[in-house]
Design a protein around this nucleic acid. Structure first.
Length: 249
DNA sequence: AGCACA
C-alpha cells in the first residue's frame, strides 16, 4: 500500500509538528523561542504557529533537511518549554516553505483550480472514448499527449517571490553562549548569578555599546548546552524572555 | 487532541 497509513506515525519529514505548547504565549514570542531552541539542530526555513481554535498549542518547524528534523525530534522530545513538555512528531505533509525552496510550490487556490480542470478533462475523455482502448505498443500507461517521461514542474512559475529570507546559519554547539533580548536593566552581576547555577560557568561578557546582549562562557559545550536548556526563555523582567543561542566564534 | 502555510 502507498501513502500514509491510518494510525501510524507520519513518515520522516524535514518538518516537525510540535504540540502541547503553552497556549498563553504570543505568536511572535513563541516563534522566537522555538527558533532559539531548535536552531541548534540545523537551518530552519520557517516556523508556522497559528492561534486559531483548531491550531493553538501547535507549531511546525521546517528544517533544511530531515536529518536535522530527526535529531530535533529525538533530542527535544518531552523538553520542558514554558512549563509544558513538548510533544514532537514528523509533520504529515510537505511544508510550503519546502516547496518554495525546491521550486514546486503552487498556491493553494491554483492547486484547486488545476485539480478541477484535470477532473473535467478526464470526464470528457472518458465520455468520448467509451470503453478504454488497449495501450498502443510502446506507450506508457497513464501518459497523456504532450507528456514526456521524467517531466518536472516548472521552477518558480506563477510569479512567486523567491523563498523567504532565512536567518543566517546558526553557530554549531560550542562553549560560548550568545544571549539576546535582555532588558536594559540586566547587569553583568545578575547574569553571572543566573548562569553560575550551572556547572562549568566561567564568565559573562557584556558590551557597553550593545545593550540587550551578552556572551556567557562555559568550560565546554555540554555545560553550555545544559545552561541553555535551563535558562531558555527565562525572564529577568516580565517583558523580555531571554533568547540563548550558541555564539559564533 | 487538534497537521498548516493570514
Amino acid at each position: 500500500m502507498v501513502g500514509p497509513v491510518q494510525g501510524a506515525d507520519a513518515a520522516p519529514n524535514q518538518t516537525i509538528y510540535v504540540s502541547n505548547l503553552n497556549e498563553k504565549i504570543k505568536k511572535e514570542e513563541m516563534k522566537k523561542s522555538l527558533y532559539a531552541v531548535f536552531s541548534q539542530f540545523g537551518k530552519i526555513l520557517d516556523i508556522v504557529n497559528l492561534k486559531t481554535l483548531k491550531l493553538r498549542g501547535q507549531a511546525w518547524v521546517v528544517f533544511d533537511d530531515i536529518t536535522a528534523a530527526t535529531n530535533a525530534l529525538r533530542q527535544m522530545q518531552g523538553f520542558p518549554f514554558y512549563d509544558k513538555p513538548m510533544k514532537i512528531a514528523y509533520a504529515k505533509t510537505k511544508s510550503d516553505a519546502v516547496s518554495k525552496a525546491d521550486g514546486t510550490f503552487v498556491p493553494r487556490e491554483k492547486r484547486k483550480a488545476i485539480e478541477e480542470r484535470e477532473k473535467e478533462k478526464a470526464r470528457k475523455r472518458a465520455a468520448a472514448a467509451g470503453p478504454v482502448p488497449a495501450a498502443l505498443p510502446g506507450q506508457m500507461p497513464g501518459m497523456m499527449p504532450g507528456m514526456v517521461p521524467g517531466m518536472v514542474p516548472p521552477a518558480y512559475g506563477y510569479g512567486m517571490p523567491p523563498p523567504m529570507a532565512v536567518p543566517e546559519a546558526p553557530a554549531p554547539p560550542n562553549n560560548l553562549l550568545f544571549v539576546e533580548n535582555l532588558p536594559l536593566e540586566a547587569s553583568k552581576l545578575m547574569l553571572s548569578t543566573l548562569f553560575n547555577q550551572f556547572p562549568g560557568f566561567k564568565e559573562v561578557r557584556m558590551i557597553e555599546s550593545k545593550p540587550g546582549i551578552a556572551f556567557v562562557e562555559f568550560s565546554d559545550e555540554n555545560q553550555s548546552t545544559v545552561a541553555m536548556s535551563g535558562l531558555q526563555g527565562y525572564r529577568i523582567t516580565p517583558t523580555n524572555p531571554m533568547l540563548i543561542t550558541y555564539a559564533k566564534k
